[in-house]
């Protein structure tokens, strides 16, 4: 096979690719490497260590792993990802797509419109809408439920941001699953119905095996996006008392507010490693699937 379809030749191909490679190098690779370096120093935003940072080895990492606040933040993040990405966005998105499948007309358009609206509004706008919704005094939710004075953001900060992120991101999952479900032939579902399969059995035996690749992609993407999501910071800022301080907030609070840039860089690198684990697990599952399919 001719691998040089464009007929450029190696040298000219390199010239064409170079600007993009330089940009990627300057804005992605260098900062990443710089972060790894910073993570090994006691670099601070101000003071003596800002002028003359010292290499401290793995001290930042041992400090982070030994920090109660880091560990609690890690568990909050796990809850946040599981609750709002896996169960919330992927689960609700699939449920909506399955329910609306084959439906036409007003109901579908209204639901899709509402779900998409939450996705296309700017994050900052949405965050302040939610503050207005959940506010203790005169919040919309309290007015609706008739529970004046309920301090949702103080009493249930994690639940608030999980619901918020679910609401915000479901549209993507719903659209992805809608497209995936279109590819499951109706005759397969009808064959299962004729065999007497219940809805759950049809989902288990016919639908899920055929959209497994879509499910994996969807769960990976929503998990990664949610893991690195910073928008809810505008609602709770990690509070009260760190009860909604997921890892991105933790990095921000320690590195920028607390000034410990070296420590923050180390935690960032840990987050990167966790993301890497997600991605590798996903690739592994996808490869298994391909092998099975052959």
């Amino acid at each position: 096979m001719n691998t040089d379809a464009a007929g450029l030749g190696r040298s000219r191909a390199v010239v064409f690719a170079l600007p993009a490679l330089v940009l990627i190098g300057v804005f992605l690779v260098f900062p990443a490497l710089w972060t790894i370096y910073l993570g090994l120093t006691d670099y601070r935003l101000t003071g003596l260590a800002a002028a003359d940072p010292q290499v401290v080895g793995t001290a930042n990492y041992t400090a982070a792993l030994g920090d109660e606040r880091f560990r609690s933040s890690f568990w909050l993040t796990a809850q946040y990802v599981l609750g709002s990405a896996v169960i919330g966005q992927a689960g609700l998105g699939f449920t909506l797509a399955w329910t609306l499948r084959g439906r036409r007309g007003t109901v579908r358009r209204v639901v899709e419109g509402l779900v998409l609206l939450s996705w296309i509004l700017p994050g900052s706008v949405v965050a302040f809408l939610w503050i207005a919704l959940l506010d203790r005094d005169g919040g919309t939710l309290n007015a609706l439920l008739g529970t004046p004075g309920a301090a949702w953001l103080l009493d249930h900060p994690m639940l608030s941001i999980i619901v918020f992120n679910t609401w915000r991101g479901t549209a993507f999952s719903m659209m992805l699953y809608s497209a995936a479900l279109e590819n499951v032939p109706v005759s397969h579902l009808e064959t299962a119905r004729l065999a007497g399969a219940s809805t759950l059995q049809r989902l288990r035996d016919v639908v899920l095996p055929q959209i497994r690749g879509h499910v994996l992609t969807n769960v990976l993407l929503t998990s990664l996006w949610t893991f690195n999501d910073f928008t809810p910071f505008l609602i709770t800022a990690g509070g009260p008392e760190g009860r909604s301080e997921i890892l991105p907030f933790y990095v921000y609070n320690t590195a920028l507010r607390g000034g410990q840039l070296g420590f923050g860089a180390a935690v960032s690198f840990l987050i990167l490693l966790i993301n890497l684990v997600f991605a590798l697990a996903y690739l592994r599952l996808l490869r298994n699937r391909r092998e099975v399919a052959v």
Binding site: P185, S187, H188, E190, T191, A192, L194, A195, G196, A197, Q201, D205, V206, P209, Q210, V292, A293
Partner: peptide, 26 residues
């Protein structure tokens, strides 16, 4: 039992599992 125009065989099951699917449901 119905046979569809496109046969509607489940691509992720082998022939044995396809044939015995209605029995599995029962």
């Amino acid at each position: 039992a119905m046979v569809f125009q496109d046969y509607a065989l489940f691509p992720h099951m082998d022939v044995t599992d396809n044939i015995s699917y209605p029995l599995r449901i029962r």
